[in-house]
Amino acid sequence: MSTLVESISAISLLLGALFCCVGGIGLMRMPDFYTRMHAASITETLGVGLTLLGLLLLAGWTLVAVKLLMVGALVFFVSPTASHALARAAMTCRLKPVLADVGETTSKP
């Protein structure tokens, strides 16, 4: 039982760390500010979420787990607000987003 929980926690930590890195890579690769924000939001959702889930499984039913949940709730509620404020300020500044051509066919990865 405890080995099962530990391995789930290890997988969760591994995936969370990888998603954090993906956010960082996207921050370097994306062409303009608005698209970079999309990459950074991976770090802020799946990266944070999975890492905290991994720690939560390690902590078990303690007050530490409650604090981890509080950290999660904080990121969950505050980070979109910060992103929105940033995007809005950039738009007010007339920072033009790079947009796709209208005629182009749909993009499939």
Binding site: C20, M37, T43, E44, T51, L55, V71, S79, S83
Partner: peptide
Amino acid sequence: FDRLQAANTVGTCAMLLLA
């Protein structure tokens, strides 16, 4: 704004790092 977004990401990662 790019710098601010980067600072925000550094902050998020630092928080996770502390945990």
